[in-house]
Amino acid sequence: MADTTSSSAASSSAAPTSTAPTGTLVPNATKEVGFQENWKYRTFIDSTSSKDPKNDAGAKYLELSGGILSVTPASSDTTENSSYWPDAGNTTTDVTGTSHTFNVTGNRLIGDACQDFIAGLAYKTGDLRKTLIKQIGPDGHTMVAQVTISNIVAWGGNANAKGTFSFTMSINGKPVIDGSDDGNASNHG
């Protein structure tokens, strides 16, 4: 008996393609679109402990990559709820502040310049724990921010396992996103 499978059925499972209409703002038309794997978000940490995200010209950025298993961003908003007379008892919520952190976990890779820098901060305090980070998303958006590095764990675990490595980066103040610190830059991440 002859095969009656249509060739159009096989082609219908192919991923759809689309193009941006003329006039649509596309940061870089050659960049990938769709779901991105997390490793494509690149994070760099300044080893000179610069503090000003508006002026990172002297920064020596080291890529946070070797031995890293996970970088998990978290945010917490400060909100104010108000119930005005015209709203008939209903509430309006305004975000009056925001806090952003990045929890990093992995395996300790001795000799990796970025990990060695962070591990070297473990017994330091105050301003010595502050530096800059630069993050570049797969869409090309960038963020430069001052961070405090805390909760550093540079070793530990079972005798027959790779050493543990983890820490938290907390953004201090306002980051510079896509070269702008006016609050009108594109959303990062």
Rank of each mutant, 00 (worst) to 15 (best):
D3P: 07
T4S: 14
S7P: 05
S7H: 08
A9G: 03
S12H: 09
S12R: 11
S13N: 11
A15I: 10
P16D: 10
P16F: 04
T17K: 10
T17L: 14
S18W: 08
T19V: 13
A20H: 06
T24W: 06
L25D: 07
L25P: 05
V26G: 13
P27C: 09
A29V: 15
E37Y: 04
W39E: 15
W39I: 13
W39R: 12
W39A: 12
Y41E: 13
R42M: 14
F44D: 14
S47H: 05
S47N: 14
T48G: 05
S49M: 14
S50W: 03
P53C: 05
N55W: 05
D56H: 04
D56S: 12
A57M: 04
A57L: 02
A57N: 06
G58F: 11
A59E: 02
A59Y: 00
Y61Q: 10
L64I: 13
S65M: 06
G67N: 07
L69S: 14
V71Y: 04
P73F: 14
S75C: 09
S75E: 13
T79I: 08
N81A: 15
N81M: 08
S82W: 12
S83T: 10
W85L: 15
W85R: 14
W85V: 15
P86Q: 10
P86M: 12
A88G: 10
T91D: 10
T92H: 08
D94Y: 07
D94G: 07
G97D: 11
S99N: 12
H100W: 06
N103G: 01
I110V: 15
G111Q: 07
G111Y: 06
D112S: 07
D112R: 03
A113K: 14
A113Q: 10
A113R: 09
C114K: 03
D116C: 01
F117S: 03
F117M: 01
L121H: 00
L121I: 07
L128N: 10
R129Y: 01
R129C: 02
R129M: 02
T131R: 01
T131F: 00
L132T: 02
Q135I: 12
Q135H: 03
G137P: 01
G137D: 04
D139S: 09
T142C: 05
M143C: 05
A145F: 01
Q146L: 01
Q146S: 00
V147K: 04
V147Q: 01
V147G: 06
S150E: 06
V153S: 12
V153E: 12
W155Q: 13
W155N: 07
W155D: 08
G156Y: 01
G157H: 09
N158T: 09
N158W: 13
G163C: 13
G163F: 14
F165A: 00
S166W: 02
S170K: 07
I171V: 13
G173N: 07
G173D: 00
V176I: 07
I177P: 04
I177E: 04
S180I: 01
D181W: 04
N184L: 03
N184W: 01
N184H: 00
A185R: 03
S186D: 11
H188A: 11
